[in-house]
């Protein structure tokens, strides 16, 4: 279910932990699987569990506890906007409203063409760069004014 490149990445993560503590790599292995498939199906979670050598439920519990894992299909680009207080004081909530209007969807929804999913996020630890938007979980976009949002969205197919 995963490419040799993804498996090699998981192997690199596994090497960080004691041989009898392979479970420690569950979070990064699920992350690597999610990057390849965009979201985690039960089959994918089971596959990762089998690869690490843990019970499927142990991987499932990680996939459901941490909120950056997607258990439902998401669009090609997942946009997560922080609306927590420090960001809101500097336009975070407004950035979220602007994105909702522009994309015509609410939080937790995906555009009909499957291009964007919009999520409301909690503190990302980047309040000084507010408003911030996390792109596909791994890329932090700073100072997301309406102009900056327009520009960023235009770059994304």
């Amino acid at each position: 279910m995963l490419t040799p490149e993804s498996l090699a990445q998981i192997d690199r993560e596994l090497a960080k932990y004691p041989a009898d503590q392979r479970r420690s790599a569950t979070m990064s292995a699920l992350r690597i699987a999610q990057v390849e498939h965009r979201w985690l199906t039960n089959e994918l979670i089971e596959f990762v569990a089998g690869y690490i050598g843990i019970a499927p439920v142990a991987a499932y519990e990680v996939a459901t506890f941490y909120n950056m894992f997607d258990r439902k299909p998401v669009g090609r680009h997942k946009l997560t906007v922080c609306t927590n207080l420090p960001c809101a004081l500097s336009g975070g909530a407004d950035a979220g409203k602007y994105l909702q209007q522009k994309l015509g969807i609410g939080y937790g929804e995906t555009t009909a063409d499957g291009r964007f999913t919009l999520m409301e996020g909690e503190c990302m630890g980047a309040c000084g760069y507010a408003p911030v938007m996390l792109l596909n979980n791994h890329s932090m976009c700073s100072h997301m004014t309406p102009d900056a949002i327009d520009k960023k969205l235009a770059e994304l197919e």
Binding site: S24, M27, F65
Partner: peptide, 24 residues
Amino acid sequence: HHGYGAYICGEETALLESLEGKKG
């Protein structure tokens, strides 16, 4: 070692649980 979205893991024993590959 990276987290994946859980404020609670800043609490040190939740962090240890998470580092062991469990719920934080």
